[in-house]
């Protein structure tokens, strides 16, 4: 094995071999985050359910009952819960990811390892929360008698993967820029909160005029949440054009985030 250290690395070199060498780190970082997160808490992993559930109740009362928000004829609680499930994965994933390098400063300045593992692991922690919170969704589907269509069920893992990749891509950008400009941690929560209202979480995509729907798709979460609803409620009417726009924007964000990360990564230890 030969290691060559030079002033510049090529940003397009994704060193898969190295990440494979350190693959146990994904497990250990995720495991560390989960352990630490739920240590000394009273209800432990139930927190993963608690947050989206309470939000769902509050939104149902205010937007569902009081505002009479349309929901494509689907019961509002389950309608909004599907949205919240994916949205929570994205938003908490992004929030955690953006601080990941700054929070792990001590390791980054003392030892070399693929830093990508840190970020991916932090998102994997949220994926586990996502699965736990999904139990409520299954219970609700049973309660409201919704049967998902089989073909659609195959789409769910794809949607989950798209959410993860969007979070990684955008997270890579913000976490890298956060190393240099610490304003990010003030801007980001605000930005994420605003973004929720620009994403069809509490309202259906059909609320937007058909001509302009693709604009919603620039936010990958729009296509993901809309498709998830179509699949879960068995309607099967996935808006493929919206889905495609979301898919492309996801890829663009992912590549941009990755490039920015790769360009700055090596200097983290100097500026963190």
């Amino acid at each position: 094995m030969e290691i060559i250290i030079k002033p510049k690395n090529k940003w397009w070199q994704l060193d898969l071999k190295e990440i494979w060498q350190f693959r146990d780190l994904f497990y250990f970082f995720t495991w560390r985050d989960l352990k630490v997160k739920y240590k000394q808490t009273l209800i432990g992993v139930l927190w993963a359910v608690f947050q989206p559930f309470i939000t769902m109740v509050v939104f149902t009362v205010f937007f569902g009952k009081l505002v009479q928000m349309p929901s494509d004829g689907i019961s509002y609680p389950i309608f909004v819960y599907v949205g919240l499930l994916f949205w929570t994965l994205f938003s908490t994933g992004l929030t955690n990811a953006s601080n990941i390098f700054v929070n792990n400063e001590k390791i980054i300045t003392k030892v070399y390892f693929p830093k990508l593992t840190l970020l991916v692991s932090s998102i994997l922690t949220n994926v586990i929360d996502f699965f736990i919170a999904s139990i409520i969704l299954f219970a609700m589907m049973f309660w409201y008698h919704y049967t998902p269509n089989i073909l659609g069920l195959l789409l769910l893992p794809v949607l989950l993967l798209m959410t993860i990749l969007s979070t990684i891509g955008i997270g890579l950008f913000f976490s890298s820029i956060n190393v240099k400009y610490r304003d990010v941690r003030f801007i980001l929560p605000f930005f994420i909160q605003l973004l929720m209202f620009l994403t069809p979480v509490i309202y259906p995509v059909s609320l937007a005029p058909e001509k302009y729907r693709w604009i919603l798709g620039l936010n990958p979460m729009s296509g993901i949440i809309d498709s998830a609803r179509a699949v879960v409620f068995g309607t099967g009417n996935v808006d493929w054009s919206l889905f495609l726009v979301s898919m492309i924007s996801m890829l663009v964000y992912f590549i941009m985030g990755y490039i920015y990360f790769k360009k700055t990564e090596r200097y983290f230890a100097d500026i963190i």
């Binding site: 030969e2 290691i3 060559i4 250290i5 030079k6 002033p7 510049k8 690395n9 980054i108 300045t109 003392k110 030892v111 070399y112 090596r266 200097y267 230890a269 100097d270």
Partner: peptide
């Protein structure tokens, strides 16, 4: 942990 500004290292 940090890159050099000039030169090269082979290990």
């Amino acid at each position: 942990i940090t890159p050099p500004t000039t030169g090269e290292i082979k290990m």
